[in-house]
Simulated scan of single mutants.
Amino acid sequence: MCTSPGVAYDLGYHVVWCPKYRRPVLEGRVKDRLEELIRAKADEPGWEIVALEVMPEHVHLFVKSHPKNSPSYVANQFKGFTSHHLRAEFPHLRSPLPTLWSRSYFVATVGAVPAETVQRYIDTQDERPSKGGGRA
C-alpha cells in the first residue's frame, strides 16, 4: 500500500506489448538495454516494477503506479521512451520496422487475482512452450 497526501492506493498494471509485426527482435543486447530503459523510465515518476520479462517478440511488465496515471498513459510512456532510445542505439531496428512497437497493447489492472499470481505468471514466461502465432 502506498500513500501520498490525501490518498492511499495499491494499483498494479499488467502490461504486454509487442514489436511491430511481432518480429522477434528483443534478444541479446537489445533485450538487455530494453530492460535497463524500462527500469529507468519507471524511476522517473516513482513507479515500482514488480516483475519484468522480455521475450523475443513481446514484453510483460507488472508495474505499480500512482492513481493519477491512467493505464494507457503508463503503457504509452514505456513504449514511447523505449522506442526512441532503442531505435537511436540500434540502427538495425529502424530498417525492417516502420516503428518499433505495434500500436496495440494489453493492460489489466491487478486486483481480480493476487499480485503474486501475476508476478509468478510473468516470471515463468520463459519456461512456457511457444504457442506459435498466439497473441500477447
Rank of each mutant, 00 (worst) to 15 (best):
M1K: 14
M1W: 14
C2K: 15
C2S: 15
A8E: 15
A8S: 15
Y9H: 09
Y9S: 07
L11M: 15
G12R: 06
V15W: 02
W17P: 01
W17S: 04
K20H: 06
Y21T: 00
Y21G: 01
R22L: 06
R23C: 00
P24M: 07
P24Y: 05
V25H: 00
E27A: 14
G28F: 12
G28Y: 13
G28H: 13
G28E: 14
R29E: 12
L34W: 00
E35T: 05
E35C: 08
L37R: 06
L37E: 07
I38E: 00
K41T: 14
A42D: 04
E44M: 14
P45R: 13
G46E: 08
G46C: 09
W47V: 10
E48V: 15
E48L: 15
V50N: 07
E53R: 10
V54I: 14
M55Y: 14
P56H: 06
H58P: 12
V59C: 03
H60R: 05
H60D: 03
H60N: 06
L61S: 06
V63K: 00
K64N: 05
K64T: 06
S65L: 06
H66V: 11
P67C: 13
S70G: 14
S72I: 12
S72A: 13
V74F: 05
A75S: 12
Q77K: 09
Q77D: 08
F78H: 02
K79S: 01
F81G: 05
T82F: 03
S83Q: 02
R87D: 00
R87Y: 02
A88C: 01
F90L: 01
P91V: 03
L93F: 01
L93N: 00
R94G: 00
P96V: 02
P98V: 01
P98N: 01
R103H: 05
R103A: 03
S104N: 11
S104Q: 12
Y105F: 13
Y105H: 06
V107F: 04
T109N: 06
V110G: 01
G111A: 05
G111T: 04
A112S: 09
A112W: 11
V113T: 12
A115H: 01
E116I: 03
E116K: 08
T117G: 09
I122A: 02
I122G: 03
S130T: 12
G133M: 06
G134Q: 10
G134K: 10
R135D: 09
A136M: 10
A136T: 09
